[in-house]
């Protein structure tokens, strides 16, 4: 009988899980400053990345993934809101990644571009602060089955850093 160690050593080239095959680059949706990372945040536990720019309703909010993917767009607030209108009212673009993984982008202002769409960094709205927000920003959050995952954020970008549009934020 072979030892369990040698059996383990024989385990090679296993089935790749659907999750393992997917790796997309998350990028900044407009020229912005990183105001919260999955490590640093002010106040209570955040578990997400925030990037901000003060020019509310000026910059288009591009979907923050550098690949053609299908976004499910949910509009909960129709008006122009820059500084928050209460938790649960945020406009959302959501990407299903399979195996229960999702990536969400929140707080943008509704425009004529706000509908379900398959695209690579298209604008789904304008930079804004709908929902639970104190100013115009975009909140990016990854989860599996509703549990936040904070590890996607790149260690090479830091809080306070200025990001160009389409600059790397992390890998999802």
């Amino acid at each position: 009988m072979r030892s369990s160690k040698s059996r383990l050593a024989a385990l090679t080239a296993l089935v790749a899980l659907p999750t393992a095959a997917l790796a997309y680059t998350a990028v900044a949706p407009y020229p912005s400053t990183v105001t919260a990372t999955t490590y640093y945040s002010s106040g209570t536990y955040h578990g997400a990345v925030d990037v901000a720019n003060s020019r509310c309703n000026y910059w288009g909010a591009e979907t923050g993934v550098s690949a053609s993917v299908r976004w499910n767009v949910t509009v909960r607030t129709s008006g122009v809101v820059c500084n928050g209108n209460g938790s649960g009212n945020q406009n959302e673009a959501k990407l299903d990644l399979g195996s229960g993984w999702s990536f969400r982008q929140w707080h943008w202002i509704k425009t004529s571009d706000s509908y379900d769409r398959t695209c690579n960094r298209c604008q789904v709205g304008n930079l804004g602060g709908t929902g639970n927000a104190t100013g115009p920003h975009s909140h990016f959050q990854k989860d599996q089955y509703g549990t936040k995952n904070t590890s996607w954020y790149s260690s090479y970008t830091s809080k306070g850093e200025a990001l160009d549009r389409a600059e790397l934020m992390g890998y999802i």
Partner: peptide
């Protein structure tokens, strides 16, 4: 509803 208790966003 995948977030029936509003747990995904607590800023």
């Amino acid at each position: 509803d995948q977030d029936p208790y509003g747990c995904l966003h607590r800023d």
